[in-house]
């Protein structure tokens, strides 16, 4: 994989002065090597036309390598894409990752890495990821997700320093998806316990929305046990 990435970068002619992709991946992952577990409180606000969800709080517990547990006071929509610290699914083995360019933004150099699902895991309309890695602190500051099926989404992270770690303080998600929510005045009351027909067959129009996720009350390396994650998620 690393050899392939280096060879590809060498072949494109602009990767010589830049670290190889594998090194970028390694440096991003190193950020969280000493982070064994944590608990954090997220609050999420979502803005979608004709959709209303109150601001929600959810407590997230994480333990290496990929154990998550959520506790929410009610129903919550969360981006499918793993944006939580410690999670690195966008750089997992199932992705082909390669550095495509560097970019200057506010005096910071970003390594722009493209990740695509490997052919044997690729499904129809699998999204392509463009990941902007901050070269100064090796954090993922921006991710652009492109999918023929669900449109384009963009995630922007703002970090703060806590001990040895750069941790997300806010995550802003701008997304597109297929299927708008019509603002029908009168619901369909003919049938009980089913969604109105107009919501079931609305795959055509493109819907744009925004989500703001704020992180608070981090507690790091608190010694969470595996058994804690075996309990049913308290939702």
């Amino acid at each position: 994989m690393a050899f392939f990435a280096i060879a590809l970068l060498a072949g494109t002619g602009f990767g010589l002065a830049q670290p190889p992709t594998s090194q970028i991946i390694a440096r991003v992952s190193e950020q969280f090597e000493a982070l064994q577990d944590y608990v954090v409180t997220l609050s999420a606000q979502i803005e979608v036309p004709n959709f209303r969800m109150p601001c929600k709080e959810v407590i997230v517990w994480y333990k290496k390598p990929d154990k998550f547990k959520f506790k929410s006071s009610g129903f919550l929509l969360m981006p499918k894409f793993r944006f939580l610290p410690g999670s690195s699914s966008f750089l997992s083995d199932s992705l082909d990752v390669r550095l495509v360019r560097t970019q200057q933004d506010d005096g910071i150099t970003y390594y722009v890495v493209v990740a695509k699902p490997k052919p044997w895991v690729q499904q129809k309309n699998s999204p392509d990821l463009e990941i902007f890695v901050n070269s100064q602190r090796w954090t993922v500051d921006r991710i652009v997700i492109k999918s023929a099926d669900i449109g384009m989404s963009e995630i922007r992270n703002v970090y703060f320093r806590l001990g040895d770690f750069w941790l997300p303080e806010t995550t802003r998600v701008v997304f597109e998806m297929r299927g708008s929510i019509p603002a029908h005045e009168t619901p369909d009351f003919n049938r009980f316990f089913v969604a109105p027909e107009y919501l079931k067959n609305n795959r055509g129009e493109l819907l744009r929305g925004r989500m703001l996720i704020t992180f608070a009350n981090y507690r790091l390396n608190i010694g969470l046990s595996d058994e804690f994650f075996k309990e049913k998620n308290r939702e």
Partner: peptide, 14 residues
Amino acid sequence: EALRSFQGAFDYIG
């Protein structure tokens, strides 16, 4: 059924 529009990009908690 109701939140079909969100299924591509979002997971449900709760």
